[in-house]
């Protein structure tokens, strides 16, 4: 048989492509549920972390998440943490290189940030990517929200440890990412305060109380 003949070539390429694509779809089929579960757990963990609930391991995360009432289509959640009602909202906004998504949790009176968790970002590793580090995220916890929004501060020698002023430290060497975080968070706070979202959150919180 002539290996270089056009007919043989076409049949060969067809068979090879078919075989490999078939194997790939098999692998995909076998793992698709696991991949979806991983994504779901990652989302649940982010919501819990933002709300200040400690949970590690897939089972514990799912058990804790079951106590939170949420509307995952709207990305809104309400839960009771340490005796007070906490609201959380999933967000996505423009960072320096791509979309930054995460979860922001506030107290039910919208006076204080409970926590911030980043789910996904494409910022420069080691610079803007440091928004994933705990020092950056934990400084939002307990921060009071001023009427004109929070401020991510840059170009200041000293760190800011005051929880009442709504000022947190930005990331050195990542001015654009820090600015993005400031506008993303303020945008979210504004949305959380809108009467529509507020009403939905109150509904969720009250339905959670009865469950």
């Amino acid at each position: 048989m002539n290996k270089e003949a056009t007919g043989y070539t076409i049949v060969f390429v067809f068979i090879v492509s078919f075989a490999f694509v078939f194997l790939l779809s098999m692998t995909n089929q076998v793992t698709v549920e696991r991949v979806e579960l991983n994504q779901e757990i990652a989302r649940q963990r982010a919501v819990l972390t933002a709300m200040g609930v400690d949970a590690t391991g897939a089972e514990e995360i799912q058990a804790e998440f079951a106590k939170v009432t949420g509307d995952s289509d709207a990305g809104l959640y309400a839960g009771s943490v340490g005796g007070r009602t906490v609201y959380a909202k999933q967000f996505a906004g423009a960072g320096l290189w791509g979309t930054i998504s995460g979860v922001l949790a506030v107290t039910s009176d919208f006076e204080e940030i409970v926590g911030l968790e980043i789910v996904e970002d494409n910022e420069t590793p080691g610079l803007g990517g440091r928004i994933n580090e705990s020092w950056f995220k934990t400084q939002f916890s307990g921060e009071r929200i001023p009427a004109d929004g929070i401020q991510v501060r840059l170009l200041e020698g000293d760190g800011d440890e005051v929880k009442d002023n709504g000022i947190v430290d930005g990331v050195t060497g990542a001015t654009r990412t820090s600015d993005s975080m400031e506008s993303i968070i303020n945008n979210e706070l504004q949305q959380l305060r809108s009467s529509e979202v507020q009403q939905r959150l109150e509904e969720l919180a009250s339905s959670g109380g009865n469950a």
Binding site: K3, Y8, T9, F12, V13, F20
Partner: peptide, 18 residues
């Protein structure tokens, strides 16, 4: 042994991508 020379690169790419 079965690979026609003219589609050699394409098939290699397919295998690697797989």
């Amino acid at each position: 042994r079965f690979m026609p020379r003219k589609v050699r690169m394409i098939v290699q790419t397919l295998i690697i991508a797989f």
